[in-house]
Amino acid sequence: MRYLPGSSTPRHFAFSAHASRIALAAIALSIGLVTAPPTHAAGDAVANAINAVGEFTVFRTDGIQEQLEGKGSLPLYEGDTVKTGTGSQGLLEFSNGIQVALNEDTQFVILSRWEESKGFTRILRLSAGEVWVKTMGGPKPLEIETPVATAAVKQTEFDIKVQPDGQTTLTVVEGIVEFGTAFGTCPIRTSTISYGNRGKKCTKPAPVDVAPNVAWAQGIRQ
């Protein structure tokens, strides 16, 4: 069991993967109901860091720090904070097929939301820097939270950057992203850009040449 008091995992799923499967099966058999099992449980890695250039650090919820150097496989769990240093980059692959590249000076926490009707939604809480995201193999619910906005996607490729004051820039390479602040939501489509600022609705999408905005991610993906 990996759960710690500081973990962000819902208690309902804070069991080892094995124990939770047995418990769920027993409950389903005993009451004659088959409910959708959780898509993950605490103890299961939710992603792997597979490539790093420069300083790439993972801060676990229990305070342990681990680093990846070059290509490899460093498992990531719910609640982990991932951080790159100046001049550094990293690449992650989530178990459901989502790829995330981190540009330099980037930091986010891996979180989730659970809903009875929808199951888990993977959430990355981006507090600094820039990430490129691509979902593969069908629709995958994913949300990127920044201090002033949230980008929600299912099947798309996009780049999102947050400034120290929270200003958030979203560039959609392909697909559609539901981009919203507390003051309104804007659907942002292929080859457009939108900005989210504190206290304001996201800006109307404007056409943009996306290639320069995502060029930084090409190197780390190879």
């Binding site: 939301r113 809903e115 939270e145 002033v148 906005a149 929600a152 919203g180 507390a182």
Partner: peptide
Amino acid sequence: SIIDTTIYRILGTIP
């Protein structure tokens, strides 16, 4: 944290 009560999505954070 500011949560939309319909879609349960966090839409902003105020320090």
